[in-house]
Amino acid sequence: MTAPADNKPLLDVRGLTIEIDTRRGPAVIVDGINLTVGKGETLGVVGESGCGKSLTMLSLVRLLPNKIRVKGGTAEFAGRDLLKMSKSELRQVRGGKIGFVFQDPMTSLNPVMRIGDQLCEPLIYHRKMNKADARVRAIELLRLVGIPGPEQRIEAYPHELSGGMRQRVMIAIGLACDPELLIADEPTTALDVTIQAQIVDLVKDLRKKLNMSVVWITHDLALIAGLVDRVAVLYAGTVVEDAPVNELFARPTHPYTRGLLASIPKLSDERASRLSSIGGTPPEPGRRPKGCPFAPRCGLAESVCHERVPVLEPVAGSGGHRVACFVAQRQMMEAA
């Protein structure tokens, strides 16, 4: 662990821009994103499908699919730029210092390898363990993620396990080398609520035990309410709001965040006849509007919103709450 003693963030992403090749030429899908994750902090990255949340995280470990590439920006992890590392340096980071849990446990595990062997692989590679030690540690990991009878289950193939169990195995692999940072990309989307609750509790527990930083990518605002310290809301490849979790739910400031929160039916609510919804759909890549990407769907949009792109600015009267919205910023100026 070479984390600096000062309070520099563990992960510091600046101006990250990602491009995709389309028939109409290259199109920007992630547009100058800034994100930081502190040591021991849990960041929730929230957005709808296509907002670039998964691509942002995949780009950090340079796993972007063909035709999609990083156009600019830096991503410093413990002081080193992930985007400029050599292949061999990167190999030390992937699965070693940064653990990754992918969304779909059905396709991310190797179907013809026993789960024990898949768990031992990173231990032997990164930790230079011998086979016998790795096996002991693998059993320990399976027990840690709550798989009953790990001594027997270690011999199982992925198809012999249920979806919840496979996702636990994925998490165990992500955690195998005690990573400083765990990136979880919608790890519970494919699971039932009861299993989701188990996995969320497990990650909360482990985070405390291991003091790791976590980035939790999701589209479910309700899910992260009790899980993360800070939330970054993404819309069409930009961060539109970034705030501590209590602050975000108490004072959502960006019209998109407000719309998202209002469109979730709550269990504690009485039955309302209609939900408030956001009209329209997010812009397609390559057809981004000139100004604020949310302006075409925004009820508060003014002429300036269609002309210029707003940048993240601190919200008055609160620590660490930032929003990228001309209207909200002006209203705050007037209120002050």
Binding site: P148, V193, Q196, D201, A222, A225, G226, N246, L267, S268
Partner: peptide
């Protein structure tokens, strides 16, 4: 097991989590 969009509530809520599949 259903998460609620309210961080305060989530911190204090007593959950009954089912074990197993």
């Amino acid at each position: 097991a259903v998460p609620e969009a309210d961080p305060e509530l989530e911190k204090t809520r007593q959950r009954q989590i089912l074990t197993g599949d």
